[in-house]
Write a protein that binds this DNA or RNA. Structure first.
Lengths: 236, 236
DNA sequence: ACTTGTTTAAAACAGGTGTTTAGTATCGTG
DNA sequence: CACGATACTAAACACCTGTTTTAAACAAGT
């Protein structure tokens, strides 16, 4: 029975992560332990502290995020910046509302980003900085040499991040206001919507700077879904 | 001594709102009461319950939001949609990071939007729906008849809301990632940044639809700061 | 069998939680 | 003044919090 049996610590992290994600740090140890089917002393035995269990949950959430949905490396084959942007955006949106597999790591990370607590900020910044650096580079490549000023790049990157985060943070707000957004609820469609908007802006910037705009209209420059088969979605 | 003296209930709402905003619902009644300089029984006496005090805090936060920074009525004088959009955006950004006067109502509302709790969702949706309806109308007017499809309007409005919310939700993320964004930290500049981006997109959409684009470049169509003196900032 | 070290659980613990009770001061009105 | 209503508090209350203790179960080594 060792195949499906996971160690007590792993089991505790799993169920504690889910509860922490839904109820925040105020989740009680008795709640977690009863959900995990263990004694209340288990947390203190295995992790020493409730806080250290929480830190472990955030840590595994970070690892799982970039393990399940890694930003693909694109150094080898030359791909257009537009295609790279689309792949990046799709990866990020899939991270944010991963369906099927337990999405508690997203919620937990988001909770920490919105209101960080004592000793976890460094962990998160380390985990996010790399991804955002790559996204910034993609935006820079998209802008091209003549348009790639730090201000413009930062502005566009911030805009992209804002719209990606809103996919998650604005869930309640959308339902409250009445925006159904059902057509954009799918991560790929939402990502492509952002992508087109960004390309539209870059194109307009090019035109405004008396430079030759992109030859074909923006909507035609986006590869379709089949080309961006996400390779890591189906891992058991 | 009645001039600066406020009733015990108001004082409790004030200090409780601030503490709830920073620490969430897990703030203790003893913490609140000691900060307010009253007995621990005061909350139960005046509000019956800790939860009802919290609800009252959210309620006054809603009222204060639209009382301090109302979206101006623009029915009378004919103003261009671009100018209206700018005024709306500046109002919203000023709401989100109002400096000087206690900004706890923003934080409390944001906290409720991100993770709503039992009996307050209706209150919030009622407070937000009106503002977002008006913003949606502004975006519709900006798009004009030929471009004003529900999909495009919703997409643009969502984009605007996302970037406005990110001004607040992304505060920690920006500092973690390393985006300084100091130049956009001012609400007016951030609002104008959004405004220009939206106008750029609308302009590009017009051009793409074989329609005559706006005659002058986008950057020149925005009125400067002096024209949008916010009328309600300085109320004591 | 005896020991040794590792896991686990039931119970106890000290302190914090929201709430209630009983009582006191204050004020306006007859 | 007496009276009742209101505003408020200190102390007590029942419960919940994270943690520790005690002891039992188990595996492995000698």
């Amino acid at each position: 029975m060792e195949t499906e049996e996971q160690s007590r610590t792993e089991k505790l992290i799993e169920v504690a992560g889910e509860i922490f994600a839904t109820k925040g740090r105020s989740a009680t140890v008795r709640e977690i332990c009863s959900a995990a089917g263990v004694s209340v002393a288990a947390i203190n035995y295995h992790f020493g502290d409730k806080n250290q269990l929480y830190v472990q949950c955030v840590r595994t959430a970070c690892e799982r995020k970039q393990k399940l949905f890694p930003l693909p490396e694109m150094d080898k084959e030359p791909v257009s910046p537009e295609a790279i942007l689309q792949i990046f955006l799709r990866t990020i949106t899939q991270r944010l509302l991963a369906k099927g597999l337990q999405p508690w790591h997203n919620t937990l990370l988001l909770r920490e980003v919105l209101s960080p607590t004592d000793g976890v900020a460094e962990m998160l910044s380390e985990a996010f900085r790399k991804d955002f650096g790559r996204m910034d580079a993609v935006v820079g490549a998209l802008l091209g040499e003549s348009l790639n000023t730090p201000e413009r790049r930062t502005e566009l990157t911030t805009q992209i991040i804002a719209r990606c985060m809103f996919l998650r943070t604005g869930k309640n707000m959308r339902s409250m206001v009445g925006l159904d957004m059902t057509q954009n609820e799918e991560p790929e469609q939402y990502a492509d919507s952002i992508c087109q908007s960004v390309l539209l802006q870059v194109n307009a910037l090019r035109a405004a700077h008396q430079q030759a705009p992109l030859p074909c209209p923006v909507s035609a420059r986006l590869p379709q879904s089949s080309t961006v088969e996400n390779s890591q979605t189906n891992l058991n």
